[in-house]
């Protein structure tokens, strides 16, 4: 696909025709915050932090930049009163779950989000799905997945698979913005193969 020229925050940007707005912005050194995005993974579009304002043929809309394709003459604004409000409320909603996650706290400062705005529900997981998708897409082990639905959705390590696959890997821990992946994994360890850690330490 041929390159296109577009505008991001008033700056003329040249982008590959198959890029997303997020990729184009980052290539041009323009920062857009994300929580569920990872360069090695398919775009997910769940956290909605990367929402931006776009204007095509005079019509303005709000889109997630991690999925929105670049187009010729597209006008993108990565900050505006409304974009900031969306990010602020999303952060306030997530801080109800993980009030001390450094990534969230840092973003909260930037977007003036009040971490006590909403009732606390400390599940610690923000369901960005990095662990789930990394395990499926990069490691192809599918040891952790989403279960349930709606407000009940959570991540779950599958004991039968985790027992075989996770001991040597644990790479998803470093992706987790709240350290909940570790917590969930250790619970699974306790359930499915308790004592292995101790045995392994003793034999070492």
């Amino acid at each position: 696909m041929s390159d296109v020229v577009m505008q991001i925050d008033g700056k003329e940007v040249k982008a590959g025709g198959d890029m997303t707005v997020l990729q184009a912005a980052r290539a041009a050194g323009i920062h857009i915050p994300t929580l569920c995005h990872h360069d090695k993974l398919e775009p997910f579009g769940a956290c909605r932090m990367c929402m931006v304002e776009v204007e095509t043929r005079g019509r303005m809309s709000y889109v997630v930049s991690c999925l929105y394709p670049v187009a010729k003459d597209l006008v993108v604004r990565t900050r505006s009163e409304r974009v900031d409000k969306i990010r602020r409320v999303i952060l306030e909603e997530l801080l109800a779950h993980a009030p001390n996650s450094p990534e969230l706290v840092e973003l909260a400062r930037e977007y003036r989000a009040d971490r006590d705005r909403f009732d606390k529900d400390p599940s610690f997981c923000i369901l960005c799905g990095l662990c789930v998708r990394y395990c499926a897409e990069v490691k192809q082990k599918n040891a952790v997945d989403f279960i349930e639905r709606g407000a009940l959705r959570e991540i779950s390590f599958i004991p039968e698979i985790a027992k075989k696959e996770c001991w040597e890997c644990q790479e998803c821990f470093a992706l987790c913005p709240t350290s909940y992946a570790q917590a969930a994994y250790f619970l699974t360890e306790a359930l499915a193969f308790p004592g292995r850690r101790k045995a392994s330490a003793q034999s070492a």
Binding site: G45, A46, I86, E93, L127, F146, R149, G150, L152, R153
Partner: peptide
């Protein structure tokens, strides 16, 4: 109870 639960907002 009837949404998928994927996106934050």
């Amino acid at each position: 109870n009837e949404s998928c639960g994927k996106c934050v907002p």
